[in-house]
Amino acid sequence: MKLTGTVHRFGNDVDTDAIIPARYLNTSDPEHLGRHCMEDADPSFASRVSKGDVIVAGKNFGCGSSREHAPIAIKACGVSCVIASSFARIFFRNSFNMGLPIFESDEASAEIREGDTVEVDASTGLIRDLTTGREYRARPIPAFMQELIEDGGLMEHIRKRGGI
Protein backbone atom coordinates (compact mmCIF):
# COMPACT_ATOMS: atom_id res chain seq x y z
CA MET A 1 0.00 0.00 0.00
CA LYS A 2 1.39 3.42 -0.98
CA LEU A 3 0.48 6.51 1.03
CA THR A 4 1.00 9.88 -0.65
CA GLY A 5 0.40 13.37 0.67
CA THR A 6 1.63 16.79 1.68
CA VAL A 7 3.80 17.10 4.78
CA HIS A 8 2.82 18.99 7.93
CA ARG A 9 5.77 19.34 10.30
CA PHE A 10 5.72 19.36 14.10
CA GLY A 11 8.55 19.45 16.66
CA ASN A 12 9.69 17.20 19.51
CA ASP A 13 7.53 15.83 22.36
CA VAL A 14 4.16 16.56 20.72
CA ASP A 15 1.89 15.36 23.54
CA THR A 16 -1.58 13.87 23.46
CA ASP A 17 -3.03 17.07 24.95
CA ALA A 18 -1.77 18.89 21.85
CA ILE A 19 -3.05 16.17 19.50
CA ILE A 20 -6.52 16.14 21.06
CA PRO A 21 -7.11 18.36 24.11
CA ALA A 22 -8.86 16.79 27.10
CA ARG A 23 -11.75 19.23 26.77
CA TYR A 24 -12.95 17.19 23.78
CA LEU A 25 -12.69 13.81 25.51
CA ASN A 26 -16.29 13.84 26.63
CA THR A 27 -16.95 12.09 23.34
CA SER A 28 -15.20 9.42 21.29
CA ASP A 29 -16.91 10.27 18.01
CA PRO A 30 -14.13 10.17 15.36
CA GLU A 31 -15.56 12.96 13.21
CA HIS A 32 -15.82 15.31 16.19
CA LEU A 33 -12.30 14.41 17.37
CA GLY A 34 -10.89 14.88 13.86
CA ARG A 35 -12.19 18.44 13.72
CA HIS A 36 -10.03 19.33 16.75
CA CYS A 37 -6.94 17.36 15.76
CA MET A 38 -3.65 19.11 16.73
CA GLU A 39 -5.67 22.14 17.84
CA ASP A 40 -3.39 23.17 20.72
CA ALA A 41 -0.24 22.77 18.60
CA ASP A 42 -1.62 24.47 15.47
CA PRO A 43 -5.22 25.76 15.61
CA SER A 44 -5.52 25.93 11.80
CA PHE A 45 -4.33 22.35 11.22
CA ALA A 46 -7.68 20.59 11.03
CA SER A 47 -8.99 23.08 8.45
CA ARG A 48 -5.82 22.92 6.29
CA VAL A 49 -5.22 19.19 6.24
CA SER A 50 -6.26 17.19 3.16
CA LYS A 51 -6.96 13.51 2.81
CA GLY A 52 -3.73 11.51 2.56
CA ASP A 53 -1.49 14.18 4.15
CA VAL A 54 1.43 13.11 6.29
CA ILE A 55 2.58 14.33 9.69
CA VAL A 56 6.36 14.48 10.17
CA ALA A 57 7.57 15.13 13.72
CA GLY A 58 10.64 14.92 15.95
CA LYS A 59 11.21 12.65 18.90
CA ASN A 60 8.70 11.21 21.41
CA PHE A 61 5.58 11.93 19.32
CA GLY A 62 2.36 11.19 21.22
CA CYS A 63 3.75 11.38 24.74
CA GLY A 64 1.36 11.80 27.65
CA SER A 65 -1.94 10.08 28.10
CA SER A 66 -3.10 6.68 26.89
CA ARG A 67 -6.04 8.17 25.00
CA GLU A 68 -6.77 6.30 21.81
CA HIS A 69 -8.62 9.46 20.87
CA ALA A 70 -5.20 10.71 19.67
CA PRO A 71 -4.64 8.22 16.81
CA ILE A 72 -8.42 8.28 16.18
CA ALA A 73 -8.34 12.07 15.73
CA ILE A 74 -5.30 11.86 13.44
CA LYS A 75 -6.90 9.18 11.27
CA ALA A 76 -10.27 10.92 11.26
CA CYS A 77 -8.90 14.24 10.01
CA GLY A 78 -7.51 12.47 6.94
CA VAL A 79 -3.83 11.98 7.81
CA SER A 80 -2.55 8.79 6.16
CA CYS A 81 0.52 8.17 8.33
CA VAL A 82 2.93 9.72 10.84
CA ILE A 83 6.71 9.76 10.47
CA ALA A 84 8.80 10.65 13.54
CA SER A 85 12.21 9.95 14.94
CA SER A 86 10.55 8.17 17.88
CA PHE A 87 7.07 7.61 19.33
CA ALA A 88 5.90 7.49 22.94
CA ARG A 89 5.18 3.87 23.75
CA ILE A 90 1.42 3.95 24.40
CA PHE A 91 0.84 6.00 21.24
CA PHE A 92 3.02 3.46 19.42
CA ARG A 93 0.93 0.48 20.51
CA ASN A 94 -2.35 2.31 20.04
CA SER A 95 -1.45 3.14 16.45
CA PHE A 96 -0.81 -0.51 15.58
CA ASN A 97 -3.88 -1.65 17.50
CA MET A 98 -6.00 0.84 15.54
CA GLY A 99 -4.31 0.40 12.18
CA LEU A 100 -2.77 3.91 11.87
CA PRO A 101 0.55 3.40 10.02
CA ILE A 102 3.52 5.04 11.79
CA PHE A 103 7.18 5.05 10.79
CA GLU A 104 10.37 5.76 12.73
CA SER A 105 13.29 7.37 10.90
CA ASP A 106 15.75 9.89 12.33
CA GLU A 107 16.84 11.09 8.87
CA ALA A 108 13.34 11.46 7.43
CA SER A 109 12.29 13.27 10.59
CA ALA A 110 15.22 15.68 10.30
CA GLU A 111 15.23 16.36 6.56
CA ILE A 112 11.70 16.30 5.17
CA ARG A 113 10.32 19.87 4.99
CA GLU A 114 6.93 21.44 5.51
CA GLY A 115 4.93 21.30 2.28
CA ASP A 116 7.00 18.55 0.62
CA THR A 117 5.10 15.73 -1.03
CA VAL A 118 6.05 12.30 0.26
CA GLU A 119 5.18 8.77 -0.74
CA VAL A 120 5.44 5.99 1.82
CA ASP A 121 5.33 2.30 1.00
CA ALA A 122 3.59 0.97 4.12
CA SER A 123 4.72 -2.62 3.62
CA THR A 124 8.44 -1.95 3.09
CA GLY A 125 8.80 1.27 5.11
CA LEU A 126 10.43 3.05 2.15
CA ILE A 127 9.80 6.80 2.38
CA ARG A 128 10.33 8.92 -0.77
CA ASP A 129 10.33 12.70 -0.65
CA LEU A 130 8.95 13.44 -4.12
CA THR A 131 9.84 17.14 -3.79
CA THR A 132 13.54 16.60 -3.11
CA GLY A 133 13.92 13.13 -4.60
CA ARG A 134 15.52 11.77 -1.42
CA GLU A 135 14.74 8.33 0.00
CA TYR A 136 14.66 7.10 3.59
CA ARG A 137 14.18 3.70 5.14
CA ALA A 138 12.04 3.48 8.28
CA ARG A 139 13.08 1.15 11.09
CA PRO A 140 11.66 -2.33 10.41
CA ILE A 141 8.33 -3.16 12.04
CA PRO A 142 8.35 -6.38 14.17
CA ALA A 143 6.58 -9.31 12.50
CA PHE A 144 3.75 -9.40 15.06
CA MET A 145 2.93 -5.76 14.41
CA GLN A 146 2.97 -6.29 10.67
CA GLU A 147 0.41 -8.99 11.31
CA LEU A 148 -1.72 -6.49 13.25
CA ILE A 149 -1.64 -4.01 10.37
CA GLU A 150 -2.41 -6.73 7.82
CA ASP A 151 -5.33 -7.98 9.92
CA GLY A 152 -6.66 -4.43 10.28
CA GLY A 153 -5.88 -3.86 13.96
CA LEU A 154 -5.89 -5.88 17.18
CA MET A 155 -9.61 -6.68 17.40
CA GLU A 156 -9.73 -7.97 13.81
CA HIS A 157 -6.59 -9.96 14.57
CA ILE A 158 -8.30 -11.65 17.53
CA ARG A 159 -11.43 -12.27 15.46
CA LYS A 160 -9.42 -13.88 12.68
CA ARG A 161 -7.07 -15.93 14.81
CA GLY A 162 -9.20 -16.67 17.87
CA GLY A 163 -6.78 -14.99 20.27
CA ILE A 164 -3.90 -12.56 20.51
Binding site: S66, E68, G153
Partner: peptide
Protein backbone atom coordinates in the same frame (compact mmCIF):
# COMPACT_ATOMS: atom_id res chain seq x y z
CA UNK B 1 -4.79 5.19 31.46
CA UNK B 2 -1.16 6.18 31.24
CA UNK B 3 -0.66 6.51 35.01
CA UNK B 4 -1.43 2.83 35.51
CA UNK B 5 2.33 2.63 36.14
CA UNK B 6 1.54 3.87 39.69
CA UNK B 7 1.08 0.28 40.92
CA UNK B 8 4.72 -0.49 40.19
CA UNK B 9 5.33 1.00 43.64
CA UNK B 10 3.87 -2.20 45.11
CA UNK B 11 6.26 -4.42 43.19
CA UNK B 12 3.83 -5.08 40.32
CA UNK B 13 4.32 -4.81 36.55
CA UNK B 14 1.73 -2.19 35.66
CA UNK B 15 1.52 -0.34 32.38
CA UNK B 16 -0.76 2.00 30.49
CA UNK B 17 -2.32 0.80 27.25
CA UNK B 18 -5.03 1.97 24.89
CA UNK B 19 -8.72 1.14 24.92
CA UNK B 20 -8.32 -1.52 22.22
CA UNK B 21 -5.77 -3.38 24.35
CA UNK B 22 -8.32 -3.26 27.12
CA UNK B 23 -11.09 -4.62 24.90
CA UNK B 24 -8.75 -7.44 23.90
CA UNK B 25 -8.04 -8.24 27.56
CA UNK B 26 -11.75 -8.18 28.40
CA UNK B 27 -12.22 -10.74 25.64
CA UNK B 28 -9.16 -12.94 26.13
Amino acid sequence: DSHTCTYGALGAFATGVGSTDLAAAMLT
